[in-house]
Nucleic acid binder design. Structure first.
Lengths: 230, 230
DNA sequence: CGAGTCATTGAAAAGATTCAATATGAGTGG
DNA sequence: CCACTCATATTGAATCTTTTCAATGACTCG
């Protein structure tokens, strides 16, 4: 009834990847878990893709390198439990982004070869990956720049959607990058929101106090108040 | 050996979807083709996802609506032959974006139900979609805002990568949206590039004259040290 | 030809970045 | 526990960039 590595098996039977791999039916999951410390660099843009990672817990920051020298360019997205890293290896040889652990993370990884065999062999596998990619794509669409609103507007919009997850893990610098602004600008934006009574913040947390007020800041788009007739 | 609708079948035997569907082996492709005129609105953000489209030819503009009223928000990506629209329907009920045909397009579409059955039944199907999504994800990462460089820098970077495809189909307004700037700003950016001899442009086309010069503009990041000639 | 849309230009204003100076908090070693 | 250090966050002021608004030029389609 119990396996020797019971804890791990039990975890995998709850993991979507494990389920798709058929761990419950004694199949082996191709992804093997490993912990990494906060701050570890998982890969750098331009490196050949050797492994694909599945985030089991924690948060990983994905950044796009602007020039090839820098390890860290502008933050692009935060990947949390349930999403994959390095899947671009299925369609191109090298990494598009750099990835760094924001918190301590548990990552399950598989080599690209192993993954390929698994996808060919297991019916549910591709479907699982497909849905994971679609889901993270849906969550990752950011707030590009001024065209999406001023700094306070974008900040407010982001907080409305991410306030719960946000507080501890995402530092100011990272959040600023995600929102396409400088840390200084984010500071000022937060102060503006706080002065309206929409949020309360210290330097390590942000708390939404009044969603309505936040909403009213976020919503008053660049285009004042008109409708898009035609 | 010949079907009655031979022309269509022959086309589908070259189409990746058709191949995955096994058209060559007399299977039916779940996606049925249809032409749409330039300018047609395919879906609007917030609408329930009913169909999934595959772009067989032409270009489709995907925009993100800022507020729910507007049909057209800020342009997000241009989808060309080989990519899908509406796949978010697999993981959520409603459309995230609005889509409008930029040129005359041939779209093959399938209802979400049909697609679901196809994915369950056909081995290669999910894998195909997975790779298509990864591919377009790789191509669609834009240039969010000022943090990725000034307007001329982003414009130069985009031209370096997209000059060939760009010329005819993408209007100024659309390109400006993709680059996260106003059309006026794009105009000025293009003029700046032209004044350096990097490009030549009229109001309906942009031609890259000197990639090296373009590169030197794009590359000198915000933190750049060197000034340009002139 | 004329109406309407799209692209360009100019000038003023709004907003963001930069640089420099503090402030805060975490971590370290005495 | 405390001083000390270091990295991160905030603030201020000057500068630079982008947007806005208004006007004009260019092209398309009836």
């Amino acid at each position: 009834m119990e396996h020797s590595d019971d804890r791990e098996v039990r975890a995998c039977t709850r993991c979507p990847v494990g389920i798709a791999a058929g761990v419950a039916e004694r199949e082996r999951c191709p992804f093997v878990p490993r912990k990494r410390a906060a701050g570890s660099v998982l890969h750098v843009a331009g490196d050949p893709v050797e492994r694909v990672w599945f985030v089991k817990s924690g948060a990983v920051l994905v950044s796009r390198s602007i020039d090839e020298e820098r390890v860290e360019g502008t933050p692009w997205a935060v990947r949390r439990a349930g999403s994959f890293l390095g899947l671009e290896g299925l369609v191109r040889p090298d990494h598009l982004d750099s990835a760094r652990a924001l918190t301590e993370v548990t990552l399950c990884s598989a080599s690209l070869d192993t993954l390929g065999r698994w996808l060919d062999g297991r019916r549910a596998a591709s479907r699982l990956l497909l849905e994971a990619v679609l889901r993270s794509g849906a969550r990752e669409r950011p707030f590009r720049g001024n065209i999406d609103g001023t700094a306070p507007q974008r900040t407010a919009a982001w907080l409305l959607e991410n306030a719960p997850r946000a507080s501890g893990q995402v530092t100011r610098r990272v959040l600023a990058g995600l929102l396409g602004m400088r840390p200084e600008t984010l500071s000022r934006a937060l102060r503006a929101l706080a002065s309206r009574g929409a949020i309360r913040h210290t330097r390590r947390m942000v708390e939404v106090v009044d969603r309505t007020r936040l909403w009213s800041v976020a919503r008053r788009g660049r285009s004042g108040g008109e409708r898009g007739a035609d």
